[in-house]
Design a protein around this nucleic acid. Structure first.
Lengths: 147, 147
DNA sequence: ATCAGTGCAAACGATTTGCACCTCG
DNA sequence: CGAGGTGCAAATCGTTTGCACTGAT
């Protein structure tokens, strides 16, 4: 069997690394913020014969989540589920209530991964992960309303 | 005009306090955790002629949110939107990844309401509110899987 | 009496699924 | 070659909306 290098340095074991999956992975990788399935779909180039079925996108995202490649979130806002690569640990966002921009936070305001929770209501609850979202107004939007 | 006391001690001004609204409010008030529209609907007693239209439930919940009577949330989990009365400030939950139970936390693990955020990525972002959800495994579910 | 609130059914948008075909390994 | 992946269209689910009727104030 001929030894040939794979063009993508890192990808999960045990699944077929099809052009569709490559592309969805690439789009998520290039994204600066979490994307919905529809947003991923719309970033496919129709001129390049790239309009893979939207159901395929959903199935790929399901597989990615199964493999812990992505994080899935649906928060306040437009109600759609958004996906992002599960990069270096977790990410939280500051969400502007005006322009709906999601600003990723550099650091986590809470340090309690995989720990025992000390709260009288949730005794013996073992925390595996957490999500935080801060709501407020970004610099630009505050300026906009300052008149 | 005859002065007559209202049977419900507290309710919002300016809206008709119909039996449907009373009942939805009561269900939310009795609930120990946030409920989805469908869950509220299913708690109506069909024997009591109480099966108000599901669309009515949604509309009532929309009004309640407008009046700041309730908080609306859709996080990780089953994808449905859940509602709870906007009681004494904000509440956070520990969500069991196994049984999906939502355990309200006694205290907020984060103290940063209405403050300036100090994060290099979100400079000059003014935080109005925040949501936190902890994911993990509750006592019962951990016991279940311990064999 | 009036107009907001309701019920019903139909519309809607996001997500899922069944099935035949295709393609990676 | 064969199992797994995909495309397409139809189904499903939660939620929203149009319209005629009802009931709280």
């Amino acid at each position: 069997m001929i030894e040939n290098k794979k063009d993508t340095s890192e990808y999960p074991n045990g699944i077929k690394w099809t052009k569709q999956r490559k592309r969805v992975y690439q789009i998520l990788d290039e994204a600066t913020q979490p994307l919905s399935a529809a947003q991923i779909y719309s970033r496919l180039d129709s001129e390049e014969q790239e309009k893979y079925a939207i159901s395929t996108i959903y199935r790929i995202l399901a597989v990615f989540e199964e493999l812990r490649l992505t994080d899935k979130t649906n928060w306040m806002g437009d109600g759609r589920i958004v996906y992002e690569l599960h990069r270096t640990g977790h990410t939280h966002y500051a969400v502007c209530l005006d322009c709906h921009r999601r600003i990723p936070l550099e650091q986590c305001p809470l340090h309690m991964n995989a720990c025992q929770l000390h709260d009288s209501q949730a005794e013996d609850f073992v925390v595996v992960s957490h999500k935080i979202e801060l709501y407020g107004y970004c610099k630009d939007c505050r300026a906009k309303h300052m008149d």
